[in-house]
């Protein structure tokens, strides 16, 4: 392992700035963030908790933020809505018996027993040690069996050529992709995802990101004290995305 001089200076500068501005906060962040050369481990289990009571019908901030963050540009694409990538979508749910309506975002549920990983012939669909389910697009052959297997319609096949990708979110024609739980942000130690950030910015705070394995984290404390549910619990896939109010 070697750190370039520039990296070292930058790290030093950041550490000094952090210490000077808000030592307490910085310490917590340092405790969470892993260094770039460290492999992820099962010590963490990243998850999302979505409170549908706080989610506004008609608000698509999380979807927009996801698209901006990951370089998804529906305008650029030629296909129909059904062929464009849908990493996260807003679903409106109505109980026909009572008339009760609510709105919620649905993305990859990052199952710990993911059907997409089971069916993938090459192992391109995989679950990282910290629970994030990803597609290794270097070995994805575009067979789409994972999309057949996903109970949440969370995966999209890239139907056409793409340009203008972000350097941290490579995407291309002929392979399958889905929500990465902003893995580049997680690895950087941002401690949040684009959707959660955007939701908070709107003042809704309906999406909470965190480490389910860390008993002190807000998400772990909330799921311990409140009733939360997973979509299609009957399948018993142990999703890392939980909901309140469904």
């Amino acid at each position: 392992m070697s750190v370039s001089r520039r990296d070292f200076m930058a790290m030093g500068a950041a550490a000094t700035a952090g210490a000077a501005i808000a030592p307490g906060i910085r310490l917590i962040e340092l405790a969470q963030a892993k260094s770039p050369e460290e492999a992820v481990t099962a010590a963490q289990r990243w998850g999302l908790l979505i409170d549908t009571n706080k989610c506004n019908k008609g608000c698509t901030s999380c979807v927009d933020a996801c698209h901006t963050e990951n370089g998804i540009d529906h305008e650029q694409l030629k296909g129909s809505d059904a062929t464009k990538p849908q990493w996260i979508r807003k679903v409106e749910v109505k109980d026909p018996n009572t008339g009760y309506e609510h709105s919620l975002p649905v993305m990859c549920q990052h199952c710990q027993e993911p059907p997409c990983v089971d069916v993938c012939p090459t192992g391109a669909s995989f679950k990282r040690a910290d629970g994030i389910v990803l597609v290794d697009r270097h070995i994805c052959i575009g067979c789409r069996y994972c999309m057949m297997a996903c109970p949440y319609k969370a995966r999209s096949f890239e139907h056409e050529d793409i340009t203008g990708q972000k350097e941290y979110a490579p995407r291309g024609k002929g392979t399958v992709e889905s929500c990465t739980m902003c893995v580049h942000k997680v690895d950087r130690g941002d401690g949040t995802t684009a959707c959660a950030e955007a939701c908070a910015k709107e003042g809704h705070n309906a999406i909470l990101f965190g480490d389910l394995n860390d008993p002190k984290s807000e998400i772990a404390q909330t799921v311990r004290s409140k009733a939360t549910r997973r979509i299609r619990e009957d399948l018993n896939l142990d999703n890392s995305v939980r909901y309140i109010g469904i």
């Binding site: 849908q86 979508r89 679903v91 409106e92 109505k94 026909p96 979509i231």
Partner: peptide, 13 residues
């Protein structure tokens, strides 16, 4: 995904 519910979305749910 939600048995017994009426669902709709921008993605044909």
């Amino acid at each position: 995904m939600f048995p017994g519910m009426e669902v709709s979305s921008s993605f044909l749910d």
